[in-house]
Design a protein around this nucleic acid. Sequence first.
RNA 1: CGGAGUGUAGUAUAGCGGUAGUACGCGUGCUUUGGGAGCACGUAGUCUGGGUUCAACUCCCAGCACUCCGACCA
Length: 416
Amino acid sequence: MRQSQLFTKTLKNISADEQSVNAKLLTRAGFIHKEMAGVYAYLPLGLRVIEKIKQIVREEMNAIGGQELLMTSLQRKELWAKTDRWDDKNVDVWFKSRLKTGADVGLAWSHEEPITDMMLNYISSYRDLPAYVYQFQTKLRNELRAKSGILRGKEFLMKDLYSYSLSAEAHEEFYKKAIDAYLRIFGGVGLGKDTFLTFASGGAFTQFSHEFQTLLDEGEDVIYLDRSKKIAINKEVLSDKALEQLDLKRKELEEVRASETGNIFNFGTAKSEQMGLYYIDEKGKKMPVVLGSYGIGITRVMGVIVEKFHDDKGIIWPESVAPFQVHLLELSPTPSPQSSPTRGEEVYRALRDEEIEVLYDDRDLTAGEKFADADLIGIPWRAVVSKKTGDRVEIKRRSESESKLVDLKELIKELS
RNA sequence: CGGAGUGUAGUAUAGCGGUAGUACGCGUGCUUUGGGAGCACGUAGUCUGGGUUCAACUCCCAGCACUCCGACCA
């Protein structure tokens, strides 16, 4: 894409009100726009990052048998009343509205109830199980206090998968596969080294649920981490008994702050029973379906990545989620549309021919401004053409300071 | 929901009970072109409502919005 065509611009300064690093950098670089507290729009650059993260998640979900769908944002009151979660006393983040007919509707803060209710239509026999369905959906939550930029918003994008299994054993098997898939996802988006399976409060059916906590000083959670075992326990369930069950020793645990980037739950059969989701087994016996849910905060992951990968000049995107692979800067171009294409144009076309995602800074700006923008936007590779580079290209990683001169072939090889 | 703070051009900020200033941006022109370049001219503003006052952007009250701390967080 040509940067001259990109409608967003970088900003040198933003409101002192915006204090989180992720919101500051993403706003200044033109990835997001704040509509109101805790509510952000994702602009072209930001959306590209979102789509990259989604694709990494999608591939892993498909690999464990997930089928993608898209549920609705408007939800029926009755479904949530069945599990006693319509009442504001029980769920305090509801946005509620009313149809012209007078019927109450809720705006989706989760989809467990509607998706489980929908499955009543499709699950009636053991032959229909298991079923794994997932979606990427905007969740709307009337949080009292949004904070930390896109880390906790009133509106955010989440991947939620729901598993419907025949038995506790079958569920357990899938649950383990989901854990592995999650670890691969966090590795894939560049957070693998700092993301740990964490035992957390489990609810009625199981003692623990599992969170995926990414170490981050700006995170909201405190966890106790055993680095050698690569697992952690959330402060909220820390007890001598829990430590013993998990075979963890208090003196080997490190207290660290983290952000909950994923969370998986075993609901057992409780919700199925409440909602009437049963199947008939081989012997003709009516059995409740075993339910699990598996979430990843897509936009939160994006925010965490920015919090972890930046310097004083801007963002440093991991290659797997960067909006573009390479930022091509043409310095001191000689604008003359009638004559032959500039060196920048040639390189731009060559990269595009190789299907390399390139943001081409073809704007008539000074070198300093282009460098500053490139650092701020944070694309992993920077390629510069100018009088100085002649028929070669100067390339540099955003994360490093040394550059080198290469020819076009080497450039393409480096980026492929 | 408890506590604290802040609302001044598109953005960031200064100031004052008496005609609102600077920087960036934006527009025009010229000069520049390897780290947010220069000159000139131009552009645009006191959150809303009420009160005090001869006079309110400034003081007081309320509302709304934003930020931070805490509580909450399937």
